[in-house]
């Protein structure tokens, strides 16, 4: 699994990610100045929005990979494994978005949770993709699972704007101002802006590294399953009194384990 070069590349990627995150943390916690309005709290801006961005990026990748699997011309089990890997990483980042948002909300708004449109949408998104991952755990043959989860992943993605719109209306049509005070959003310039940008880059690197790793695990697991299946089939074939022509092994799953160009 994985050529030497690919593994070296991934390791380098991991090291770069750790360094970038470390620099972001140092800049965010100590170097950048506190904000005029938000004070020290503004430091959370270097981690919270990047979490949300990566979550959306991850779900975008999941949907794209789902489409590529559903489209017959590009159908390959790799897309399915990629979609699953990205969704899992996305759920982690969505969870962290919710946690950091909540931690930020407590001192800024005085509450851990508010029924703000963006928060509520994110929470629903979190559950939607947990459902997607749960659906994937249903035992099924790999093609069947791939089709079903690709459809589920796509539906979840299509559902996001509907959910978002409904929640936005819910908060605006029946209630004047939201809790989100516009004056709280700080003006950003200078080193704050560059730190924020660095945060986005750093956590995107982390995402790519995690995705590569998660994908490799998924592919290896698929290989283990295929190998065991193959062995069982061989055992059955060797049993006396059973025509070997009755069982055919599935061939399409065998080429999954190669490193892909993701």
């Amino acid at each position: 699994m994985g050529s030497k070069r690919y593994q070296r590349l991934r390791r380098a990627m991991g090291i770069v990610s750790v360094l970038l995150v470390a620099v972001t943390v140092v800049l965010g916690l100590w170097v950048t100045p506190p904000d005029v309005v938000q004070g020290q709290l503004v430091r959370l801006i270097y981690v919270h929005p990047p979490m949300a961005w990566v979550a959306y990026l991850a779900y975008g990748v999941t949907s794209l990979a789902s489409v590529l699997y559903l489209w017959r011309r590009t159908r390959n089990l790799r897309w399915d494994l990629l979609a699953a890997s990205s969704a899992e990483v996305g759920v982690i980042f969505t969870g962290l978005t919710l946690i950091t948002g909540s931690i930020w909300g407590r001192p800024a708004w005085g509450v851990w949770w508010t029924w703000d449109a963006r928060l509520t949408t994110t929470a629903l998104l979190f559950v939607l993709y947990i459902g997607y991952l749960a659906l994937r755990r249903i035992p099924a043959d790999s093609h069947q699972r791939a089709v079903r989860s690709a459809i589920a992943g796509l539906i979840a993605f299509i559902d996001v704007p509907i959910v978002h719109q409904s929640v936005v209306w819910w908060r605006t049509l029946h209630q004047g101002a939201t809790v989100l005070n516009p004056s709280l959003s700080p003006r950003i310039h200078g080193e704050m802006a560059s730190t924020l940008l660095l945060g986005f880059i750093a956590f995107t690197f982390v995402y790519v590294w995690m995705l590569l790793h998660r994908y490799q695990i998924a592919a290896l697991e698929q290989n283990v399953l295929d190998a065991e299946l193959e062995k069982l089939i061989q055992e059955r074939r060797n049993e006396p009194g059973l025509g070997s022509s009755q069982i055919e092994s599935s061939g399409d799953a065998n080429n999954v384990g190669q490193p892909s160009k993701v």
């Binding site: 430091r43 946690i99 001192p107 995690m210 790793h213």
Partner: peptide
């Protein structure tokens, strides 16, 4: 700083580190 900021950074680093 004020506890909240540290908690936020800790959550992120802990979450990502744990998952890695």
């Amino acid at each position: 700083m004020n506890g909240y900021v540290e908690a936020g950074y800790l959550a992120v680093l802990g979450g990502l580190g744990g998952y890695s």
